[in-house]
């Protein structure tokens, strides 16, 4: 009996972080998105407050992240398809040099803003509590996608999952379409 109890104790202890993560595959849903004011590569200042009244799609990226680069052309397509439907697409780059990001921008030619989270403070705010507790908090959102609604509530949050990678943003578009159709 003692062995059984001891084993159960260890199972709970060792698997708890994974269970928490599994439960939070779409974390922070319904929460008010953390506010931010960031400078874009274009030199303009962007804040979530300014974008109230629009759906905001945020992709957290770094130039070296292969999954971010695979999604990049589809983010531009998304922007082109939804820009006139009250949707603002943004990339928040995490802790990288402006020169490097500018070079990266030349490849993808984004026509939407790329914002600089130079010290990782905003990425840290978007790291869901309890998810991947062993990582530096600013690393957690790398390659994540969010939809923030017109009242600044998080309606979609996909963390990186390479075994079910959605480069074409199919699920995000489904959610966006549903949100837009519910408005009519």
């Amino acid at each position: 009996m003692k062995t059984l109890l001891f084993s159960l104790y260890w199972i709970v202890l060792t698997c708890l972080p994974n269970l928490v993560y599994a439960q939070q595959e779409q974390p922070m849903i319904g929460q008010i998105a953390p506010a931010f004011t960031l400078t874009g590569l274009d030199g303009k200042t962007y804040s979530l407050e300014q974008l109230k009244g629009k759906y905001v799609v945020i992709h957290f990226a770094t130039t070296w992240c292969p999954f971010c680069n695979a999604e990049a052309p589809y983010l531009e397509q998304l922007h082109q398809a939804y820009r006139d439907k009250g949707v603002q697409v943004l990339i928040i780059d995490i802790k990288e040099d402006r020169d490097l990001i500018e070079k990266w921008l030349q490849r993808f030619n984004f026509s939407f803003p790329v914002l600089l989270d130079e010290n990782g403070a905003i990425s840290t705010k978007y790291a869901p509590e309890g998810v991947q507790p062993d990582l530096a908090r600013h690393e957690v959102p790398i390659a994540s996608n969010l939809i923030i609604d017109k009242e600044s509530k998080i309606r979609f949050y996909s963390l990186l999952n390479t075994t079910n990678f959605d480069a074409k943003l199919v699920k995000l578009k489904q959610e966006l379409d549903e949100l837009l159709s519910n408005e009519k």
Binding site: Y21, T62, W64, C65, P66, F67, K95, Q132, L135, A136, E139, V140, I142, A143, L159, L160, N161, T162, T163
Partner: peptide, 11 residues
């Protein structure tokens, strides 16, 4: 620079 199936880590 490392990745696993749920994350890509900083270099």
């Amino acid at each position: 620079q490392a990745c696993d199936n749920q994350r890509c880590l900083m270099p």
